[in-house]
Design a protein around this nucleic acid. Structure first.
Lengths: 137, 137
DNA sequence: TTTGCTGCAAACCTTTTGCACCTAT
DNA sequence: ATAGGTGCAAAAGGTTTGCAGCAAA
């Protein structure tokens, strides 16, 4: 089985470029919309396919929020966790918890650990102000 | 604004009874299927509506898995975390990480922490055997 | 009697897929 | 020329919602 070679296309470039402009997570739908706004008309199916492939190679990080999958370009290719602003979506990477600890917890129950997720939700400084102002009004 | 009073119905009873029979998380769809198997014919929409209401009151715990929301009755009404078998859905509650640590991480970035999730996925002992046998065959 | 709850079916949304065409290699 | 990528539209989930009828209180 000869390994198939990935091709370089206008669409792939556009997606990476688009992803790099965004700080925080975006849904496939919104990424597609934003690209369209910039005149980059790419099929929605392609956005999904490409995103899935990027996820497989670890080039993007994903989380689930409100029933949809959100993507974010992942510069350093390691597993990590996030502190996510519930209001604007801005994210900050945080230190992973002690993986050894997680593994031992799993082992205590005779489970094999395959993966884990840790997400911390909150409000970033800007949104705190924004919301405080709106409420105080 | 007078507070509306919740009514007691056959369907609600059935749902709670059904949920209590299940160890681990179930999807709305599967809960509906299981209830039907027991002769408890409840509209799928009702299952969803009821589940959403239980979630709001904190009577059930939920996580997302494979694009669907999974529910589990939550006896003790506290926040906790899970070790989940990816194959059969069986779950075990695990010790929460140090909340103080999470809070300090958030504060370091000037975020206010509102919530967090931690889920550890793996295979339970039974499913490990099952899958090993299937693969070895 | 009042009005919350239910069932049904249609509507919604996100994501996936089949297929013919296009295009990088 | 070969075969991976793309676009479109249809399909496939899962979940929500409008509405008329049912039934708890």
């Amino acid at each position: 089985m000869g390994k198939t070679v990935a091709r370089h296309t206008r669409q792939k470039d556009a997606m990476l470029q688009g992803l790099r402009q965004i700080e925080g997570f975006v849904s496939a739908q919104e990424l597609h919309r934003r690209l369209a706004e910039q005149g980059l008309d790419i099929g929605l199916a392609t956005v999904y396919r490409q995103l899935r492939s990027l996820e497989t190679t670890g080039a993007v990080d994903t989380i689930r929020l409100n029933g949809q999958q959100m993507f974010r370009i992942c510069e350093d290719n390691g597993h990590h966790h996030h502190l996510i602003c519930e209001h604007c979506g801005r994210t900050v990477e945080i230190e992973p918890p002690d993986e050894q600890w997680l593994r031992s917890v799993a082992q205590a129950h005779h489970f094999t650990m395959t993966s884990h997720t840790l997400e911390v939700f909150g409000l970033c400084p800007q949104c705190q102000q924004l919301l405080a102002a709106a409420a105080g009004k």
